[in-house]
Design a protein around this nucleic acid. Structure first.
Lengths: 196, 196
DNA sequence: CTGTTATTGCAACGGTCGTTTCAATATATA
DNA sequence: TATATATTGAAACGACCGTTGCAATAACAG
């Protein structure tokens, strides 16, 4: 054995994640990451191998600590009828909350899909999985909210929720109010629209 | 007078636009732009001033030659009842067409919202204007298609179209088939859903 | 043809990037 | 306490970035 590590690896990843979130992968420089994490180059590279591997850890942290907690009420065994609407109103509010990463910088994963790493297979897989989790959650919420509809119509509303939430995530950085309007529009459709 | 310009400025902008489209603003290097346009650094800088100004010209070219032509049937004085559905089915097909910039790289403007220029005011304004044009077009299409609904319900469907199209543009690069599904979902809502 | 001027090719600029190297340091084990 | 080893700090690496300066070139007006 030798010298022991004094920093909390999770806290370091969290700090790095926020830097990637704010600036994007390519634009987040190693000096930026040093400053945010409090670690030097050597420690960073010794612990994570490369900037890219640190980013992979940041993505995982983002899903675990940011995305999934909000979806939790929709992913459990018993989904209440108003769980989806609660999620949507909460998200609409979050998109307009000042000084939060979500409102100011959008979704870390959606942002990544459009940068240097857009064509990276690892990232593509993470995005697909993210969309799947969203879809699963929304499907459960739609089914609980709309017992009057059949499976096919549930699917339409589920895709609609996915579309509204993804689009809001995509434009929140440039147009936060419009993003919140889009999320609220999903709530309107889920609560009150039906095939004729 | 002196020596005359031999190249077509519009063609140069078009070539540069495709490079920005494929790689993103920051990742498109000046050598890349030289190779694509066939011009040297000197000619590029003499004609456009900087990489950034060339990008501004590329954005304008993108709106004029890519976005607006597709929206034209929805922006005229007489909008037919099936114009919106025609647009949506056409877009869904385009998102899955192989070897096209739209299918492989998504929307140039949506991509730009992330990246180095995300917080640039000029870009934000262009994105806002783009969303406005989409909204105007969809509003006209919805009104023409659904005379049975009132203005408030038209607004819901219009926002829904915007959301579905924007989300599709956002994820097409990573998930083209899912993107097409989202656009088709908008068509289903427009054609057959109604408030209860 | 001559003179003028816009256009072009080439090279270099200063700066930043992610990564690597290497020696110095600190701590756990024995 | 002595030794082994993991962690750290500092400096340098080569590569690439957007931009600029300058000399050579090409094509216009006269």
């Amino acid at each position: 054995m030798g010298r022991t590590r004094t920093f909390d690896e999770d806290a370091v990843v969290r700090a790095a994640r926020d830097v990637f979130w704010q600036h994007g992968y390519a634009e987040a420089s190693v000096p930026d990451l040093e400053a945010a994490t409090g670690l030097g180059r050597s420690s960073l590279y010794h612990s994570f191998g490369s900037k890219r591997e640190l980013f992979d850890a940041a993505i995982e942290s983002y899903l675990d600590e940011v995305i999934r907690p909000r979806l939790a009420p929709l992913l459990g065994p018993d989904v209440s009828a108003d769980a989806l609407e609660t999620y949507l109103t909460g998200l609409a509010a979050a998109l307009q909350a000042p000084r939060t990463h979500l409102a100011e910088h959008g979704c870390l994963l959606m942002n990544t899909v459009r940068g240097t790493l857009a064509d990276d297979e690892h990232v593509k897989r993470a995005v697909g999985q993210y969309r799947n989790e969203l879809t699963t959650a929304f499907a459960a919420g739609v089914a609980a909210r709309r017992p009057d509809l059949d499976a096919e119509d549930h699917a339409v509303l589920t895709r609609s929720c996915t579309a509204h939430v993804l689009s809001a995530m995509a434009i929140v950085r440039a147009q936060p109010a419009a993003a919140a309007d889009l999320v609220d529009n999903a709530r309107i459709l889920v609560a009150g629209w039906t095939p004729r």
